[in-house]
Design a binder for these strands. Structure first.
Lengths: 118, 118
DNA sequence: AATAACAGTAACACAGAGGTAACTAAGTAA
DNA sequence: TTACTTAGTTACCTCTGTGTTACTGTTATT
């Protein structure tokens, strides 16, 4: 049995690393907004997301969606319509972010009031 | 009374903006790890945080702590010791991040298993 | 024949995020 | 006198995240 304090410190270091793992996936100016947009509607087309998020360019949206796909948070489906449309939805794994998204939304509202004033 | 769909869309756009507000504060390679470190221990000194977070440099730690102070998430206290030590703790407002940190920690562990495999 | 919609891609540019290394200041211990 | 500790700061450099603009290919519409 090692020292209690050291054990505790190791435990905390692990937790810190875990938070960083999450943030690695969610970092970037647009990722959470994209997830949030898809999450709100269940399924969402490329151009809809483009429209949901103020200021994002199609280049960035395309790039970030690819990364989210690689990280298995988002699923891409091409629909056989004219013109072709592409639908994005959260994977089961992506769905597990709902609580975090929801908390971040609430916190963001409170924080803005706190800092900006109103 | 406007159209239901448009009202809903406006509502979602607000939520997306709120998430982005949160992320603006929490973005950066180290911020959440720093908050997490302070949060774990209640109070934490500069060199302790430096030691908690693998890979961070004193320059970055100093810079990020300043920003966190500006955003009223962290409080800095100089202790009258020899040599001088500086203690960081979360403000009341910073404390409200605990749920998010905790969720991100849990999610990070699950995500690593999912992606890396083990 | 020209234009529009959709879902991107390619080429280029640049600010700033982050890394590295050396330095400061004040006191303590060897 | 030299070296060590704490909590930073400063200068410099690199790289990458993001923005901008223009372009592709397919089909429908005018």
């Amino acid at each position: 049995m090692g020292c209690k304090i050291e054990e505790f410190q190791q435990e905390q270091r692990k937790r810190i690393r875990a938070v960083q793992d999450s943030m690695d996936v969610l970092n970037g100016k647009w990722k959470i907004a994209i997830i949030s947009s898809i999450c709100c509607y269940g399924k969402r087309r490329f151009s809809d997301i483009l429209n949901d998020i103020e200021g994002i360019s199609n280049r960035m949206l395309s790039k970030e969606l690819k990364e989210l796909e690689i990280n298995q948070l988002v699923k891409r489906t091409v629909l056989d319509t004219q013109p072709i449309t592409v639908q994005y939805e959260l994977t089961e794994h992506g769905d597990t972010l709902q609580t975090i998204i929801s908390n971040l939304t609430d916190w963001g509202i409170v924080h803005r009031k706190k800092i900006v004033g109103k």
